[in-house]
């Protein structure tokens, strides 16, 4: 197989800056560098995890890829087509192939529409089905996510968080997409419900051959569902690895700190765990530190970190890291 064909989405040097308007005349003076020069590939059929703490730009990355935000700079190549520069009205076919599942099951469904209309809206917009066919399609979508057709005439507020999230999944599936961006789809749900949704996502992936970009802050869940994981810090990707590898052999100091901070639901293990406490606060994304953005909180930081931005280095086996420490070791 051609290697290029395996890659469904290619992100190259993606940047998304939000202007901060200040002053009397609201002249643009500064930019929040929410996503600052990130690149990665997602292979067909895989689940690519994107983790990081709040404010690191992971949600912005997802929203920029699906063109909810305009791209500041860089390319997003979906199945050979560069969609980063496309006009909104030309995106229709892209919108049929890429969908999104949102974080807040209460805010992501329009409370004035019935569940049937919510799930059926993509069908109306893309004129995929109408009349009886539309009805049948809605029922089958609801069935796919474990709801019954009686639910179609109900309103979202009558459902629990987990059920609402499944309605959101049904809506995303309506256009029969290839690629779904899951933006923290389970973080607002109860533990017992999280597993239901995660299992459903895994089943759907197998059945429909979907590719996922799974954005979350919960590393244990991301590790469970993802094939590969990218760790973001302050608008940049600091480490990418297969999920096993990332856990067994975290290389970037930030990844190490992040992993060590997660309490394990096993008293004996978690009491033995030695967490690396991160000092200080995340710097402002308006004025990120020069050089390595993590150096202000990194206990291994040295002179080079201040001046030079580390580039991604391949450690072999799909494991890439952006850290100057790797040069030092050699």
């Amino acid at each position: 197989m051609n290697k290029e064909k395996d890659v469904i989405i290619k992100v190259r040097n993606l940047k998304k800056y939000f202007p901060v308007k200040k002053g009397f005349l609201k002249r643009k003076v500064q930019y929040v560098k929410a996503v600052d020069d990130i690149s990665f590939d997602i292979k067909r059929g895989e689940t690519f995890g994107l983790v990081g703490e709040s404010g690191c730009g992971k949600t912005t990355t997802g929203r920029t890829i699906i063109r909810l935000y305009d791209v500041t700079d860089g390319d997003v190549i979906f199945d050979g087509t560069n969609i980063s520069t496309m006009k909104e009205k030309d995106l229709s076919s892209f919108r049929k192939r890429v969908q999104m599942i949102f974080q807040d099951p209460f805010a992501s469904l329009n409370s004035r529409m019935t569940v049937g209309d919510i799930v059926g809206e993509p069908l109306d917009i893309h004129k995929l089905a109408s009349g009886k066919e539309r009805q049948e399609r809605i029922y089958s979508l609801l069935k796919t996510v474990g709801l019954s057709k009686e639910h179609a005439s109900r309103y979202p507020h009558e459902f629990s968080g987990g059920q609402r999230q499944r309605i959101g999944i049904a809506r995303a599936l309506a256009v029969d997409p290839d690629f779904i961006i899951c933006d923290e789809p389970i973080s607002a749900l109860d533990v017992s419900i999280q597993a239901q949704v995660v299992n459903m996502l895994e089943d759907l992936q197998k059945e429909l051959g979907l590719t996922y970009l799974f954005i979350a802050h919960d590393l244990s869940m991301v590790r469970h569902i993802s094939d590969r994981i990218a760790v973001m810090y302050l608008g940049k990707i600091v480490e990418v690895a297969k999920s096993e590898e990332l856990y067994k052999n975290p290389t970037h100091p930030y990844t190490k700190a992040l992993l060590s901070a997660i309490p394990i639901p096993d008293p004996d293990v978690t009491h033995k765990r030695e967490s690396v406490t991160l000092e200080g606060e995340v710097p402002s994304p308006i004025n990120p530190p020069k050089g390595c953005t993590f150096r202000t909180r990194c206990k291994y930081a040295f002179e080079t970190c201040k001046n030079k931005e580390p580039s991604m280095k391949n450690l072999g086996g799909d494991h890439t890291v952006a850290c100057h420490l790797l040069d030092n070791k050699k």
Binding site: R63, I66, L68, L91, S92, R95, K96, V98, Q99, M100, F102, Q103, D104, A107, S108, L109, N110, M113, E121, P122, I125, H126, G168, R171, A174, V175
Partner: peptide
Amino acid sequence: QEFVMAAKTIGATNLRILVRH
């Protein structure tokens, strides 16, 4: 709000978003 973003990702036009959502 996210439901408006959702409408955008399924390709709804601005008019539709304004009137329906």
